[in-house]
């Protein structure tokens, strides 16, 4: 069994990939991908810490259960918002969706 730090490194890598996507991508659907990756990095951390605590605690599993459900919900609403933005503006390039800019 590998040490806990390997899981932490993996989830930091996923967090980094997600932040890279959020900063540099212009397509709104790819931003949704990045958010899913970040949520999954957090989930890995929850499950790993729950497994490695002694005795193992069930709350980590429970929180991941809720987190997965909430992420699915967030993807639903996000896709609906992207669809509405596409209908209104004809693009989902977030650099062009700047009508609300002050």
């Amino acid at each position: 069994m590998e040490p806990l730090s390997s899981y932490i490194i993996l989830s930091s890598a996923m967090l980094g990939i997600g932040i890279y996507g959020l900063v540099s991508k212009r397509n709104a659907i790819r931003l949704l991908f990045s958010i899913e990756l970040i949520v999954n990095a957090a989930n890995i951390n929850f499950v790993a810490f729950a497994r490695y605590s002694n005795p193992p605690i069930l709350s980590g599993w429970n929180i991941v259960f809720y987190s997965i459900a909430a992420a699915a919900m967030e993807a639903t609403v996000g896709l609906a918002l992207i669809l509405v933005a596409f209908r209104l503006n004809g693009t989902i390039d977030i650099r062009k969706l700047n009508r609300l800019r002050g």
Binding site: G16, I19, S53
Partner: peptide, 29 residues
């Protein structure tokens, strides 16, 4: 390129902080 720098910085900071703060990584029961 800015995105890559920001992401690498965040990932390195998180991983490094956790590993430095806990040099003895716990072993699973």
């Amino acid at each position: 390129s800015v995105g890559i720098y920001v992401a690498a910085l965040v990932a390195l900071a998180v991983a490094g902080a956790v590993i430095l703060l806990a040099p003895v990584s716990p072993v699973a029961p």
